[in-house]
Nucleic acid binder design. Structure first.
Lengths: 251, 251
DNA sequence: CGGTTACTTGATCGAGCTCAATTAGTGTGG
DNA sequence: CCACACTAATTGAGCTCGATCAAGTAACCG
């Protein structure tokens, strides 16, 4: 927490995949020291970005994959009529910009939700590196396949689940992802607004708000604005048991 | 139709990507003659498969990508409570099995809807071929990226669109895909049941049925069981985009 | 044929949306 | 420091779309 107010430390900027605590859940997963070094050499690291700043917008020439080092991103697209559709959120160790791979432009937008450090990996360099590093190639395929699986999991959520199940599933997903990152599974801050949550889950924001109130009354959790404290993870799980296996498997 | 009863013709089995009319909308897109030959060498072609047969099921060891040569596939997953969730349909030139790439097993199932010829491309051979053929690598990435984009388009459909808009969008998608394949954009047979359509679109089958009836009354199309004749493509299109009223009104 | 499955049509009900009002944060400027 | 504006979130009331339940019809198949 005091980190926030410290002046910029050059050592922190000079970070590499090799000493990044997230490397195991990020693109470098399963790569050895030498491979990591080569990946490192193509990663561009910027200064922290501020809420509201965009990594890219739909139609922008697609040139790079992005990894979240700290902070959070929101991925969304704009429908023909100007409505926003939230597609997902990227937490540390997760990627954005996959939909531009192999094409000319991004189909979605990616915007910073809270102050974030981002690693940028240019497609062309990534691709040529894949030729040399089969494990990177496999890892990249795996990342894309998991993204497809995750999107399909969302299809199930939106197609089959009630509002209650959707919100429970969403909170469990966040909980699991924070725990994986060594953070608390039961106490965290939501990086996104109610608007974003509702949009993502296909619900009106009033419904989201009411559900939070209802969950609180049922002693499942405590929520104050963006602060969430989960009191009964098991019961939340039992609300979405049919989706739990996939989420837990992580694959 | 008489084809069904003819003995197996060796020439029909010996088909290759090089003389496949679908190659432009399939994995080979953008590859030259020599590259095609090398891709051909790793493609396994089976005898036609019958409705109900599975290419793979969730949890099966993932070993290959599949391309539809003729016929149609349904992709779905099963939730723990035994519910089926339809994830999509593959028409000729389209792929199945992408969610197993880079992992150990498929997350979804793929089942044949109507008698189909399938091309099988083993992952390991595909991957080693990617090292030699950058254009295949790029194409594979592109295919995966498009799949992600398509899934995200479905998220929008399920999250934001009314039943009417969903069915219109579904029919338009089929229409476009058939036209791209050199078939009629206005007259085709649905390869899937009402059950499948409803499941896919997040609607009850009764709703799907009623909408078909309603569309017919509005002279948008004629439908008889699985035969569809689209009468007013433009108006169907305007239904998908005509959410402008809602957007203008508020939000 | 009779039985089975796929689809259609009708009637009713409720989950979640919309509209509207209120409350709680969050600056911003005097 | 407070008044004011502005946005985010909550809460309430009523309504609508689409689900569910139920019955009927049409194709298919031994």
């Amino acid at each position: 927490m005091s980190k926030k107010n410290r002046p910029l430390n050059i050592e922190e900027l000079k970070t590499s995949c090799q000493n990044c605590s997230l490397s195991d859940m990020c693109l470098p997963h399963g790569m050895d020291r030498e491979e990591l070094e080569r990946l490192d050499s193509i990663v561009v690291r910027h200064r922290p970005m501020q809420p509201g700043q965009h990594l890219f917008r739909p139609g922008d020439a697609s040139h790079a994959l992005f990894a979240v080092r700290s902070g959070a991103l929101k991925s969304y697209c704009i429908t023909e009529d100007g409505e926003e559709q939230v597609l997902g959120f990227a937490l540390p160790g997760e990627l954005a910009g996959m939909d531009g791979l192999g094409g000319n432009s991004y189909a979605s937008a990616s915007v910073v939700l809270e102050t974030s450090s981002i690693c940028e990996m240019p497609y062309d360099r990534l691709q040529s590196l894949c030729v040399d590093l089969p494990s990177l190639h496999r890892q990249l395929m795996g990342v894309l396949a998991r993204e497809i699986t995750a999107d399909q999991h969302m299809l199930m959520l939106l197609g089959k689940r009630s509002a209650e199940e959707r919100l429970a599933s969403f909170l469990l997903s966040l909980s699991t992802r924070y725990r994986t990152r060594g953070l608390s599974a039961t106490e965290f801050n939501l990086p996104m607004s109610r608007q974003d949550i509702g949009n993502y889950l296909g619900l009106a924001i009033e419904t989201v708000s009411r559900l939070f109130a209802q969950f609180q009354e049922r002693k499942l959790l405590k929520v104050n604005r963006r602060q969430v404290l989960i009191l009964d993870l098991d019961q939340l799980r039992s609300m979405v048991e049919s989706c739990a296996s996939r989420a837990a498997a992580g694959r």
